[in-house]
Design a binder for these strands. Structure first.
Length: 223
DNA sequence: GCGACAG
DNA sequence: ATCTTGTCGC
């Protein structure tokens, strides 16, 4: 699929931070998202042991049946070690390559990690949102921002506040199961983002990220 | 100075 | 991210 030009990829942490701060003003963190969810994409990245290679996987699901309709993987080099706040530095090159190879233009993309719940309000999901100019959501397995535990019922949530802004939510996707941490990537509001995550979640994590995780993981073994 | 910190 | 046994629940 066609991607937006976002300038040269940063090399250092300082360059990456500057890029995040610059691009964060372009994020649209509101709206109801796609009215008709015909297809949803999930993205995840796995590491190849013993190497500095990462493998990105994109899985497109039918929005109604949640059955996969297209699948793509790509590998990239991870020069720097992981630095909190700079996940994109390691993962985005491979993710970009996988998205370029994608034929389907999905109505929504669910990313593994943070959106605006990020030190500079520009997590990986925001980056992917501007890159594709599509609605994106970030779903993290561990909290990027402090939170109070929501009630055990599926669908209950608590706000994740940074300063005076609600940057994300701790959302219970199954009764009594650890919440996931939802934040807006681009072109959708937090309320709609949580609705979608809940609808995609048959287990703790949405089907999009479960599928992408599995695909990335075994592609990392074969490729 | 030390620990925390999406994956 | 990744390393792993047992355990609880549908």
């Amino acid at each position: 699929m066609h991607l937006q030009p976002l300038g040269p990829p940063p090399t250092t942490l300082d360059e990456a931070a500057a890029q995040q701060e610059k691009l964060s003003s372009l994020v649209v963190a509101s709206g109801s998202g796609p009215s008709d969810l015909r297809t949803v994409a999930g993205i995840d990245v796995a590491q190849r042991e013993g190497t500095d290679d990462v493998v990105a996987a994109v899985v497109v699901l039918d929005g109604r049946t949640l059955r996969p309709v297209e699948t793509r993987t790509a590998t990239g080099r991870a020069d720097h070690p992981y630095e909190p706040g700079f996940l994109a530095l390691r993962e985005l090159p491979a993710v970009t390559a996988a998205l370029e190879a994608l034929d389907t233009v999905p109505d929504l993309i669910v990313c593994d990690g943070a959106g605006v719940a990020h030190p500079r309000r520009f997590g990986l999901a925001c980056h992917v949102g501007l890159l594709t100019d599509l609605p994106t959501i970030g779903v993290a397995k561990t909290p990027p921002v402090p939170f109070d535990m929501p009630k055990p019922a599926r669908g209950s949530w608590t706000p994740q506040v940074d300063g005076d802004e609600e940057v994300g939510r701790a959302l219970r996707t199954q009764h009594g199961v650890q919440p996931v941490f939802v934040s807006v990537g681009h072109r959708i509001g937090l309320e709609a983002a949580c609705d979608h995550v809940l609808r995609l979640a048959r287990h703790r994590l949405p089907e999009t990220t479960r599928r992408a995780d599995r695909l990335a993981r075994d592609a990392a073994l074969r490729v």
